[in-house]
Nucleic acid binder design. Structure first.
Length: 458
RNA sequence: GUGGUUGUAGCUCAGCUGGUUAGAGCGCCGGAUUGUGGUUCCGGAGGUCGCCGGUUCGAACCCGGUCUUCCACCCCA
C-alpha cells in the first residue's frame, strides 16, 4: 500500500457514531439557546487579518492561522524585510486573511457592520468551528467548535442571571450533574488591584491569581514577585488565598475588603444581584460559586466573568466561559454598546460526557430494516415495500447487490440492523414477506401491513 | 513557543546485547454451508518497521534531523 494519508496535527475525523453524539450535544444547546430567545447567525470561517489581529493579545496573534495570499505574493514584499527575516512584517505583507480564532470578535464585527439592520438588544447564537495554531493536548485541538450566545445593547443584570440559568439548563438536559459555574466580576479584580496599589499591573496580578488552585499560594506569590508586584501588595492580597465560605460570606468579605474602592464595590453589588437572584430562583443540576481567582479569558471582559468547570473527578479544563464586555464593538468604531455572552466548548463537553458514559440515549441514524437482495424480480418487489416503510419514516434499505445470503446476513449483523426481510419466489407468490428478528433469531411470514406494524412498534 | 513522550499488518501489541525470510491475537477475504448472521473448523491476503539521512560487513533496534501521538508549561474551550 502506498504511504498512508493523514490529517493535520490537532484535527480529527469523526465516525458516524461520533457525529451522532456531537449532533446530540449541538441540538441540545441549540434548543436551549432558542428557548431563551436567541437567534442564529453565521460568519465566514476566515476574516480579514486586521479584524482579528491584535484582539487577543500577543499570545493570541501567534495562535491565529494566517492564510497565504494568492498569486506571486513574495514579489510584492520589500526586499529588506526578507533580508532581515522579519517574520512579523513579512507576514502582514503576504497574508491578508486569517481563520476565525473565536466567535466573539467576528460577532462584534458583524454587529458594527450590520448595526442599521439589527434590532437592539440583539440576542444571537452561533455554533461554528474556530481554529488555533496551538500545540494539541488533552481537550485541546487546533480545530474545535464553540457554541456562543451573546446579547449586545443591554447593560441589564437580568441577562447575566439568565446566562447562569442557560448553562444550568443545558447541562441538566445533557444529564451532566455536578458542573460548577464560577462567577466573578472584573470590577472586583480591578478594585483589589486598586486597594493594594497595583492598578497598572491588573493583568499580571489577575493572571497570577488565577493559578491559585493549580500552583498554590506560594506559587502565586512567586509569580507576583517575578512580575514586580510589591511585597506590601502581596501581603494585602493574602486573605484571597484562603478565601472560602458560602457565597454570602464571600460577598460580605469582599464588601469589607473593597470598602475604599468605588469600582470594587460596584462589582460586589453586581455580583450580589446575580448570585442572590440565582439563589432565590434555584438551579436544576449545577452549582454556582463565587470565585475571585477567576480571571481567565480575554482581556476585554469588563464586568461579569463566567467559567464552567467539569464535575469533580473529571480531569478537563473549563468546558465553557464568558463574560461582559463593555467596549467590544468600540474596537470597530461603535461606542456604548455593552455586550455579555457565554460559550460552550463542544469538544470538551463531548469528552466529559464520554468519560462519564452519558451518551446512552443517543439514537444512531442506522437502518432498522434490511431487505435481502435475491435478484431483479425480488428486488423490485422489495422496493415497493421499502417505499411504504420509508413513508412511515422507518430507516430501511435494500442490499445493493444480489450477493450470497451469508454475506448479506453478515452485513446486517455487523451493522447491528435489528430486522431482515427475506423475499424469494415463495413470498412473492403469496404476496408476503419473511421478517427475521436478528436479536431473537425468530422469523415469521407476514403481510405488508404486519411488517409495517411490527417495525413501527419496535 | 519551551520540555518530555510515542510511532511495527485494518486494530491492539510482541520482536533478545544490532545478525537469515519481522510475529501473535482480533478483524478482513474465501471454503466447509448455492434461501439464513452471531459459534466452530480449514485455508488465504495484507508490512518501504512514520519519513529522510548517518554509523556498521549487517539497522525495526544505535545516532542526527523531521513529521505525528499523548502529556506538562505558556495560554485557552
Amino acid at each position: 500500500m502506498a504511504q498512508k494519508p493523514s490529517i493535520p496535527k490537532g484535527t480529527r475525523d469523526f465516525s458516524p457514531t461520533e457525529v451522532a453524539k456531537r449532533n446530540y450535544i449541538f441540538s441540545t444547546i441549540k434548543q436551549v439557546f432558542e428557548t431563551f430567545g436567541f437567534q442564529p447567525i453565521e460568519t465566514p470561517s476566515f476574516e480579514n487579518s486586521d479584524t482579528l489581529m491584535g484582539k487577543y493579545g500577543e499570545e493570541g496573534d501567534r495562535l491565529i492561522f494566517k492564510i497565504l495570499n494568492s498569486g506571486d505574493y513574495l514579489n510584492k514584499v520589500d526586499e529588506s524585510f526578507l533580508k532581515d527575516k522579519d517574520s512579523l512584517k513579512v507576514t502582514s505583507k503576504i497574508s491578508e486573511k486569517a481563520l476565525r480564532y473565536d466567535l466573539t470578535v467576528p460577532f462584534a464585527r458583524y454587529v458594527v457592520q450590520h448595526q442599521n439592520e439589527i434590532e437592539f438588544p440583539f440576542k444571537r447564537y452561533q455554533m461554528q468551528p474556530v481554529w488555533r495554531a496551538d500545540r494539541p493536548q488533552k481537550g485541546r485541538f487546533r480545530e474545535f467548535y464553540q457554541c456562543d450566545a451573546d446579547v449586545v445593547g443591554s447593560k441589564g443584570l437580568w441577562q447575566e442571571v439568565e446566562f447562569v440559568q442557560l448553562y444550568d439548563a443545558v447541562f441538566n438536559k445533557l444529564k451532566l450533574e455536578g458542573v460548577t459555574i464560577k462567577l466573578n466580576n472584573r470590577k472586583i479584580l480591578a478594585g483589589i488591584a486598586e486597594i493594594i496599589g497595583e492598578k497598572d499591573k491588573l493583568i499580571d496580578f489577575t493572571v497570577a491569581l488565577d493559578k491559585l488552585d493549580k500552583i498554590g499560594a506560594n506559587g502565586v506569590i512567586k509569580e507576583m514577585q517575578e512580575k514586580g508586584i510589591s511585597e506590601k501588595a502581596i501581603e494585602k492580597v493574602q486573605p484571597l488565598f484562603s478565601f472560602n465560605g458560602t457565597n454570602l460570606e464571600k460577598q460580605d468579605q469582599l464588601q469589607e475588603m473593597l470598602s475604599n474602592s468605588e469600582e470594587g464595590l460596584q462589582g460586589v453589588t453586581d455580583l450580589r444581584f446575580v448570585v442572590n437572584t440565582i439563589e432565590t430562583l434555584g438551579l436544576k443540576s449545577s452549582k454556582l460559586t463565587i470565585d475571585v481567582t477567576l480571571a481567565r479569558g480575554l482581556n476585554y471582559y469588563t464586568g461579569a466573568i463566567y467559567e464552567v468547570s467539569a464535575p469533580e473527578g473529571v480531569n478537563m479544563g473549563s468546558i465553557g466561559g464568558g463574560g461582559r464586555y463593555d467596549d467590544l464593538t468600540g474596537i470597530f468604531g461603535l461606542k456604548d454598546m455593552s455586550g455579555v455572552g457565554i460559550s460552550f466548548g463542544l469538544d470538551r463537553i463531548y469528552l466529559v460526557l464520554e468519560e462519564l458514559n452519558l451518551f446512552n440515549e443517543v439514537d444512531l441514524p442506522k437502518p432498522k430494516v434490511l431487505f435481502v437482495n435475491f435478484g431483479e424480480v425480488e428486488a423490485l418487489y422489495c422496493m415497493k415495500a421499502l417505499a411504504e416503510l420509508r413513508k412511515n419514516n422507518i430507516k430501511s434499505e435494500l442490499y445493493p447487490d444480489s450477493a450470497k445470503m451469508k454475506k448479506q446476513m453478515n452485513y446486517a449483523n455487523r451493522r447491528d440492523i435489528p430486522f431482515v426481510v427475506i423475499v424469494g419466489t415463495n413470498e412473492i407468490a403469496n404476496k408476503k414477506f419473511t421478517l427475521k428478528n436478528m436479536q431473537t433469531g425468530e422469523q415469521q411470514l407476514c403481510s405488508l401491513e404486519e411488517l409495517l406494524k411490527i417495525t413501527i412498534q419496535h
